[in-house]
Design a protein around this nucleic acid. Sequence first.
DNA 1: CTAAGATTCAAACGCTCGTTTGATTTTTTC
DNA 2: GAAAAAATCAAACGAGCGTTTGAATCTTAG
Lengths: 217, 217
Amino acid sequence: MIQSIAEPSSKLPASSFSTRERILGAAEELFASHGFAGASLRQVTASAKVNLAAVNYHFGSKDNLIEEVFRRRLDDLNKRRLLALEGARTRSSPGIDDVLDAFIRPALELSISVHGGTAFVRVLARAFAEHNDRLRKFLSDNYGHVLREFAGDIATLLPDLAKEELYWRLDIISGALTYAMTDFGVIQRPHGVSRDEHRERGIQHLIRFAVAGLRAP
Amino acid sequence: MIQSIAEPSSKLPASSFSTRERILGAAEELFASHGFAGASLRQVTASAKVNLAAVNYHFGSKDNLIEEVFRRRLDDLNKRRLLALEGARTRSSPGIDDVLDAFIRPALELSISVHGGTAFVRVLARAFAEHNDRLRKFLSDNYGHVLREFAGDIATLLPDLAKEELYWRLDIISGALTYAMTDFGVIQRPHGVSRDEHRERGIQHLIRFAVAGLRAP
DNA sequence: CTAAGATTCAAACGCTCGTTTGATTTTTTC
DNA sequence: GAAAAAATCAAACGAGCGTTTGAATCTTAG
């Protein structure tokens, strides 16, 4: 019979785990390059080298698979961001750049160090473009409290900045960060510079830019 | 017989013009909300109240229709941006904010004053998320020279800023601008503030943020 | 007015989509 | 090692996809 979908983390036989993970990895890659509607389950299962019916068996539907692709990465990203923020707080006198770094660096590390992370960041950017209400609510639930946490810390560091203004600027930074991490831009990667190095440079530029923007009069 | 697709601007009977425009408008709206793969030609033609075959008759294919949706708006946007830049140049002593305004304001005006402009901006954001090579080449062809024009002016205003750094920052601004204009963000529109007013405020914040970011040490 | 051309239309084409089914194989449990 | 449960599989389902066709209708020009 079909196993419970409601508790995906309940103890699963090791054999099924492999199939599940293979599907998630292939889906992440294909959603990144073709979009949610553009990537078919036949492409996904072929790439994952599993049977077509495995998706509906393990996830119930394509929509649930999409959601699971997000959950797997976002849970981890949020934990790392909050951990990095804790680290910045315990520093002697943390500056705005420290807080911003705690926000940006985990996303950078995800995008370069985690296998499949590059694809996931592109999936995330697609999610922003989707005005799909279900997806937005899901992201807001998994994302909103982290943003508020960071906003609180920056607010105490910039006491003269109006709350509304601060939220606007953090929102702009989020957009620019998403954009910067996905190689959307027109900037060509120079010869002799690796893809990871190129992205690292982009983030350095972004942090400098963002700090100055936050401090704007 | 089927008319030439190669010259869409050649004199067309007025009657066909109406059908063409209705298709473009409906496609723009549906591509914005469901994506290029997610919106079907049957949805488009139903929304436009034209026959299904009209799309292939007037545009040849779905891909050509997508391209035409971009061309219609981008030609105009680019003209307005370069015109605004000309205006800034003839000013007595134009500052960075004047140049940035010339870049951002036409996009803002498109998104609030032009019928369908809001939808188009969302379509544009989707195009960024698509790594579709054909689309990227098309956008680069229609967009690259304008970006270079603005970069040149800002470079003379910030002579100490390295070329590479400048291009990075302009790229970040482009991403943030696209993001800001599409209501991607998490900021809720306050009660009593119209949608247009809300977007106008966002742009004001963006310009202030961007000017400070460009001037970053 | 009439012939020619441009446009619209209903219908169908072959294809791929997400999902379901029921049998079969593998794994777990006692 | 046999019964139960979980997982995999090939095959098919109806639906929707982009595109094509050929006839019908409308518009234009001589």
